[in-house]
Computed example of a mutant assay.
Amino acid sequence: MDIRKSLVSALVVAASGAASAADSPHEASHSIAYPAGWQNWSTIGVSHRTDNNTLRVILGNEIAVAAARAGQTNPWPDGAILGKVVWKDTELANWKAATAPGAFVHAEFMFRDSAKYADTYGWGWARWVGLEQKAFNEGPQVCIACHTPVKDRDWVFTDPATFPAMVPASE
């Protein structure tokens, strides 16, 4: 359990400042504009892919976070944007039992708009690669093919993490 807590903490900290290159304009990906300010979005979940040794933080805009916290994710509401920030998994030199984000791989996004993206199952798909955030434009079918196993989950792999309820501050 301590390893999972450490992983979550490391990923959340890394997600808050990983893409400083996002301060400049970027080319559109699949005709979708780069989502400004995503580095400040809240965390919805984390994942570790053992098949390609990557760590991921799944972020969301306010609409996506509210839906995740309310359990309203199948389908996700229109206006929700999910972001997945990906790093290579790296063993920590001073703590062999833990891993942390290494080289930045990419940031990819799903934009929910059931009318605008009706031809792609209600989602706009976009990805920007590397710290320079170069647009990935191989076509949304690449994304859809990967997400087909979760089509019955509104095309989303992520299970939102459980967060404790907020307690109002004492006055």
Rank of each mutant, 00 (worst) to 15 (best):
T99M: 07
A15F: 00
A67G: 13
D119Y: 05
F109G: 08
S114V: 06
T73K: 12
V150R: 11
V12C: 10
F163Y: 10
G102Q: 04
A103P: 05
P101A: 03
F104M: 10
G122D: 03
T120C: 07
T54Y: 07
I44F: 07
T90P: 02
A64F: 03
P25R: 08
Q141A: 10
K151R: 15
A103V: 11
T158H: 00
A14Q: 12
D2S: 12
V13D: 14
V13Q: 13
N40H: 15
A145H: 12
A135V: 02
I81Y: 07
T148F: 10
G71N: 05
K84Y: 11
D2L: 14
I81P: 00
A103Q: 13
P35Y: 02
T158I: 09
A14G: 12
A36H: 11
A36Y: 09
T162Y: 09
P35G: 08
N137G: 01
Q72Y: 05
A33P: 06
A10Y: 05
K88I: 14
A18Q: 05
L131Q: 14
A33N: 11
P101N: 11
N40P: 01
G45K: 09
K88D: 09
A64W: 11
G37W: 05
K88L: 09
G122W: 09
P77M: 02
Q133T: 04
L59M: 13
R112K: 15
C143K: 07
M166G: 10
W128N: 04
V65S: 04
A118Y: 05
S16W: 01
E138H: 11
V85I: 13
L55Q: 01
S31D: 14
I44G: 01
T120Y: 07
H30C: 15
A135M: 02
P140K: 08
A18I: 03
A15P: 09
Q141W: 04
W38E: 02
V156K: 01
